[in-house]
Simulated scan of single mutants.
Amino acid sequence: MIADKWTPIVIYCLSRGPVRFGELHRGITGISKKMLIQVLRRLESDGLVDRKVYEHIPPRTEYTLTTAGERIHEPIAAICRWAMKNDSLLEQIERKRKRFSEKTGAGAS
């Protein structure tokens, strides 16, 4: 459920409270609008995110974590804290992946 690239990042960003789509998209470097929509829809269908549409002109949509989403956020936040403390290790792994990919001609995962 949270093993793909973008889902944990989206959940982490939503943990701060209600967020509008545009704000969320600007806050996540590298994610396309299409991918963000897919992730949000999947999280909504899983019951982890609430989507609220305000009937204003222009329309406004906000996303928030549900209680279940907040519970899943806890281990994601722990992983994020670990990643921040171990950024040099993660950079080293990324360099090794890149070298391996270049050497074998395989795409990096």
Rank of each mutant, 00 (worst) to 15 (best):
K52Q: 12
K52Y: 12
K52R: 14
V53F: 13
V53C: 08
V53P: 01
V53M: 14
V53L: 15
Y54M: 11
Y54T: 06
E55W: 10
E55M: 08
H56Y: 12
H56F: 14
I57K: 13
I57S: 12
P58R: 13
P58I: 06
P58T: 09
R60N: 07
R60D: 03
E62P: 03
E62D: 15
E62Y: 15
E62I: 13
E62F: 14
Y63Q: 06
Y63N: 05
Y63H: 13
Y63L: 07
T64I: 09
T64P: 02
T64S: 06
T64G: 00
T64C: 07
T64D: 00
L65P: 04
L65E: 11
L65N: 01
L65G: 06
T66H: 01
T67Y: 10
T67R: 14
T67G: 09
T67C: 04
A68L: 13
A68H: 10
A68T: 02
A68F: 05
A68E: 09
A68W: 09
G69E: 11
E70L: 15
E70K: 15
E70W: 09
E70I: 10
E70T: 10
R71C: 03
R71Q: 12
I72S: 01
I72Y: 03
I72G: 03
H73I: 02
H73V: 06
H73A: 08
H73F: 15
H73P: 01
E74I: 15
E74F: 11
P75A: 01
P75N: 09
P75S: 06
P75I: 02
I76D: 02
I76C: 05
I76S: 06
I76N: 00
A77G: 03
A77M: 05
A77F: 05
A77V: 02
A78H: 10
A78P: 00
A78S: 13
A78M: 14
A78I: 08
I79K: 03
I79W: 04
I79H: 00
C80Y: 13
R81T: 02
R81C: 00
R81S: 10
W82S: 03
W82K: 04
A83I: 05
A83L: 08
M84I: 07
M84S: 12
M84P: 05
M84Y: 07
M84K: 14
K85H: 03
K85W: 03
K85N: 08
N86Y: 11
N86W: 07
N86V: 06
D87R: 05
D87H: 07
D87W: 07
S88W: 00
S88C: 00
